[in-house]
Design a protein around this nucleic acid. Structure first.
Lengths: 343, 343
DNA sequence: TACAACTGTGCAACCGATTGTGCAGGAAAG
DNA sequence: CTTTCCTGCACAATCGGTTGCACAGTTGTA
């Protein structure tokens, strides 16, 4: 690899000089402007190709105030869910010739604010974000709207109306799963939920309650515990459930990570997993197939599709914006229906 | 979130007008240029703060030909190894106020070329890359050097000399691991290696051979099989090893994913895992702790640290470059010593 | 034949910053 | 008292494109 610090890429100015035309003519020719004569256009495009001309995105970004970069903020990429989601985001972005500025919030509100701010300063064309667990206000997102940069939320979406969003309806999914267990003859179905502050927890809880009520049964809140997703907290929740005089027959965990911690502990205390107590979960992550007891039933939340849809929604919003369609104040919402996966 | 399309962020021009000074004075005042009077400087900085002035990175990028963006290309983020690495990269980038343009090659050379090219067009200040399995030529990287954009490779590094790199010495790690088993009294140690085309495979193989030779033993190539990392290929390799009349006592897998597939199959064919045959691996990924039989021994390759070091190396290179230090044609290499982790 | 409309191209402003140069006025040096 | 130097600021070019406008020449229309 030889260095050549003095090398600088060809510009329209050079092309203009070589062909004795003005830079504006070159610019228009390269953009196929109709007012440029066919012959001139061809000579210019020919030379541009020959020189390996590439438009300077920096210059265009600067002039047009467009960067062709979408900011993507996820809680943490180490969770399979999000690493699948980012694939969908990336593939859709590639399709539209956009690139992706990436950062993680690590489920920390301050970090989320910081990275979101860095992206605004980098003047991304749009922001796709899945909120951190701690995010309870949306000022940092509002500042994007103030700068007229669209925001699309996915999966972990805010409860407010005025934002574009893509999410998976876990209320419905929960009803389906709980009902499935009822139909199989199980009665005492427990839920290790997430923190009450999370919208995702409420969705599950409401689905759970409604599924029980639909059966004309009374909701027994002793069967609902919360974990903050730490191993300790999950174990504590599980211990409470196991201590009930009337033990649960089924334990549904908030997600596969909680599930794995729960199963690991259950095994330690000699519970016959999936015999004595059935363990089910949300998410359907590939790694669970390598674990001792994969969930008997899981809810597929289609992370790839969510990411893809989020980026496509972003593209639609940007297109409308470029058409000067400021009148359209409506916000898009796309609901993905989860699927029950029985192993 | 209310929209305000007519809003545009404050510029130095506005500040200049309001204070009746020239834009150059404002620019210099904000950059603490010594030739600006203390009073003027303060008035300008005061007003800038009050207006919430932020320099337009687009304009600066354009003028200075610097974007403060580092391109990061990884094979696939779904592997824990790389999602840990990207944390190191991101944290180091944040420290230096850089942001990260991210893409995956999915171990496909064409994709790698495409995303690398997109990053060059976006004029990233530098490229950090862990090569795809297929990458056997480096023309796409050379084009970076031609544009005077530094490249740092990590983990999956090319064998060529003239590139900055950070990697983990698995030759040494392999010797350590194999020797450890010898010391424990095991004799027949098998290796499910990766494809011979991969530098990483050769490192392991050479370490394996040398460890055996160091013991004054003869290398039995029947004990070495290769997998292309697909489940089928891994199973095929394992079958061959199990079919040997003189069965292996230890099976070392190329990485934890190969390990998990191998163990899963071993269990299916009623092998007493870690009793009849000990299973060991490379990588030491957290998910293995949830699996049925985590590797008895693993080689920690410090992905976070590798990512972090790669970014720090990049910063060092950029700094030297900005100092006009073109004379320095040397390439940095940083070797990380792996650790044996015994479970 | 005269006037409108269209075609093909150039001129110049502009986006928001940085930076080399010039120049006035005051201070220090001779 | 002049010359030199320094301080503090303004002017203008520049980065690489895009785009409104002007204008000459050609074609079409009444």
């Amino acid at each position: 690899m030889e260095k050549n610090a003095s090398y600088s890429p060809p510009t329209i100015k050079q092309i203009a000089r070589q062909l004795n035309v003005s830079v504006s003519t070159v610019s228009r020719a390269l953009n196929n402007h109709p007012r440029i004569g066919a012959g001139t256009r061809e000579r210019i495009q020919e030379l541009a190709k020959q020189l390996g001309y590439e438009p300077n995105i920096q210059a265009i970004s600067f002039k047009q105030k467009k960067t062709f970069i979408i900011g993507v903020v996820l809680p943490t990429i180490k969770e399979d869910f999000f690493s699948q989601a980012i694939n969908g985001i990336e593939d859709a972005a590639t399709q539209h010739h956009y690139t992706m500025l990436f950062a993680q919030s690590h489920d920390n509100l301050e970090t989320e604010k910081r990275v979101v701010d860095a992206m605004r300063k980098q003047r991304v064309d749009g922001l796709i974000i899945s909120l951190s667990k701690e995010t309870n206000n949306y000022k940092h997102l509002e500042s994007f709207e103030k700068f007229d940069i669209p925001v699309v939320c996915f999966d972990r979406v805010p409860s407010i109306k005025n934002v574009h969003k893509v999410y998976c309806n876990l209320y419905k999914g929960t009803i389906e799963m709980v009902t499935w267990f009822f139909n199989k003859g199980y009665q005492r179905i427990a839920l290790i939920n997430g923190p009450a502050t999370l919208a995702a927890s409420n969705e599950r809880l409401n689905g759970y309650k409604d599924a029980v009520s639909n059966r004309k049964l009374k909701v027994d809140m002793q069967l609902v515990e919360a974990s903050d997703f730490s191993k300790e907290s999950t174990i504590a929740a599980l211990k409470k459930l196991l201590a009930l005089k009337n033990k649960p027959e089924v334990i549904i965990s908030f997600n596969d990570y909680v599930h794995m911690d729960a199963v690991q502990f259950a095994k330690q205390v000699k519970i016959k997993v999936n015999k004595q107590i059935i363990f089910a979960s949300y998410a359907n992550l590939p790694i669970t197939s390598y674990t001792i007891y994969p969930p008997v039933i899981s809810i597929e939340q289609y992370p790839y599709r969510q990411g893809e849809k989020a980026m496509e929604m972003m593209m639609k919003v940007l297109q409308q914006k470029s058409l000067g369609n400021t009148s359209n104040d409506s916000y898009y919402t796309e609901e993905i229906v989860p699927a029950l996966v029985i192993h």
